[in-house]
Design a protein around this nucleic acid. Structure first.
Lengths: 343, 343
DNA sequence: CTGAAAGCGCTTACAG
DNA sequence: CTGAAAGCGCTTACAG
């Protein structure tokens, strides 16, 4: 075991933390070599790598994220921007992202934008100061400034929920419009003649689903009937919309709700009002959220692959962060129509 | 505008970032003074503070978190450990925490423990490496090692959901046992004779509620009847428990569920089975989650102040992080019994 | 394949 | 109340 030939380092350090320096002394190499060996950079002799690794393990060395960030101008943080935490959809997405990123040593910084572009911009600014290693953002609807911020930062970024084919843009999701179209088409096929589309929140993805609904209706030669409410989505609002539609358009024989919470609320309202689903009116939702299969009748809906989206987005991002090429920058994970008792 | 008398700094910096140095030159003071002025440390002349502030603003200076963390061995991160993201309770808690911490310049690091002490310990280790400015953790049920880690780190820590009176321990929450007791007492008062307690997950707070239930039953001279299921809480499980209780103990005339999702599931099962609530059997829940007021009949429950808990915990933590004394280290925010149609 | 030097951008004592 | 010096613990070019 060769003793270090370096001049004695001034101990003790204030922090009480094991440093790279100490590992280097223990392994009898220079700090840079330790740094390289531990980060798995090529260009280090296998024998040295082993020696360094053992010394590090024995001393219980763990790199200091702050020092690393300062020196490399890149942290181990990944910023994740989602619209809402109160929609189970995004909770599932987040959970999958964290599950993939954490074991790889990345910390997740969760930012909730409340569907507000200004809030998103502010969060982005704040995150970018921390020189994140990567970014995951929801959809493509943001201010030009926010777009510029992302681009100018050079930080790898993956977009989730929607996809787009554009050079240099990475996205994992599914076609919201096609999903809206498919559910509508199925209701038509099942013999429904007057199908309404009801939505809240009216975010971009909601409007894409509406677009799909319209396409299906037009193809079938039917006039679309839409109830679009800008309020927050909720069970209570679903019940209100249900009553409103019944009242304003008694001929409607099916309602396609933009989110399961609305549809669940409608189902409960139907029970309260004594309206029979699906005999008198069919109800369909979107996302297949918790409880939809427990409703009375169980809710027909569109199952969306948010866990897979989270996992794949995290994987794609990790490739980008390692500087690897991503062969498939646009990943469409599809969706599934789940027919249950309500339609 | 006094020109700097310092030797020319080697420009250009790689990062393209405005530094403290540059602000110092612009303001004609030393970097340390800028640092002090911007952090609002006393002991800087008011006139200089103003001059520095203006220079900083004009240059668009923002401190580098990594450099700051390295130099001060304290980051601007606050680690928040919660059991689950899929329980709306914790989402509300988180939202309130973020809302309080973000404007103050703290970044939230959210760790999901899945009720697993080993996972919590691992997260804690990982967070502590980042030298967080503060920590918010759920309850008091953790491994001795985890406890030691927190204590030894010296990082300010606030416990949420439960409270305890112990020197040096900070907590914001309410008495889970009293809440359980109060709801049970109310059911007894309303004339229910055979009250069951049904729970899932069986985390410490659940067991405390059970304890409260037992106390109320014993005080009324009734034998407690408990259905404790270790599975994850869900609507579906609530339905199952409901059927099971009906089957195993037909004399039961009220069920107190440990969480609203179980109770909601029970209500739906009752509808399905044609069991009349509350005439045949009363149902009560806990937490007053989304949708409980929309049920058929609307669910009686215990409203818990998780948003207030999040907000107050964040405030308490900020005091601690600033090194201020906290006069009230134990904050009991109470609860509220909400009687609706189901009991 | 390995290392000596410099530097990332701040803050912490220590003086005065 | 202000500053010069040193250092936090890494990594980035630059040599060899």
């Amino acid at each position: 075991m060769p003793a270090s030939s370096k001049p004695a380092v001034k101990r003790p350090r204030a922090s009480g933390r094991i440093t790279l320096q100490e590992v280097a002394e223990a392994a009898g190499v220079s700090p840079i070599t330790v740094s390289r060996a531990l980060r798995g950079e090529r260009a280090v002799a296998a024998e040295l790598v082993e020696r360094v690794r053992q010394a590090a393990e024995q001393l219980g060395y763990v790199p200091d994220p702050a020092a690393r960030a300062l020196a490399s101008s890149r942290s181990s943080h990944v910023g994740v921007l989602i619209p809402l935490l109160s929609n189970a959809l995004f909770v599932d997405l987040l959970d999958a992202i964290q599950r993939a990123l954490l074991p790889a040593g990345y910390q997740t910084l969760i930012g909730v934008t409340h569907y507000d572009p200004a809030e998103e911009e502010a969060l982005l600014r704040s995150y970018l100061l921390h020189r994140p290693a990567g970014l995951i953002v929801t959809g493509f609807d943001r201010t030009p400034v926010a777009r510029k911020l992302i681009e100018a930062s050079g930080v790898p970024c993956v977009h989730v929920m929607e996809t787009v084919a554009e050079a240099g843009v990475y996205s994992v999701g599914f076609s919201q419009a096609e999903a809206g179209e498919a559910m509508t088409a199925q209701l038509i096929e099942q013999g429904r003649r007057h199908i309404a589309f009801a939505a809240a929140q009216l975010d971009p993805r909601t409007l894409q689903r509406a677009e799909g609904y319209r396409r299906a209706m037009q193809r079938a030669g039917r006039a679309p009937r839409e109830w679009l409410n800008p309020q927050r989505s909720s069970l209570a609002l679903g019940g209100q919309l249900f009553e409103q539609i019944l009242h304003e358009a008694p001929e409607i024989d099916a309602i396609f709700f933009n989110n399961d919470d609305l549809a669940q609320g409608a189902l409960l309202a139907a029970l309260r009002l004594g309206v029979h689903v699906p005999a008198e009116i069919a109800v369909a939702g979107f996302n297949d959220l918790t409880g939809s299969d427990q409703m009375l009748p169980p809710l027909s809906t569109v199952r969306t692959p948010r866990s897979a989206i989270g996992r794949e987005a995290a994987r794609m991002l990790m490739s980008l962060m390692r500087g690897e090429a991503v062969p498939e920058p646009r990943l469409d994970l599809g969706f599934e129509i789940v027919r249950r008792g309500s339609s």
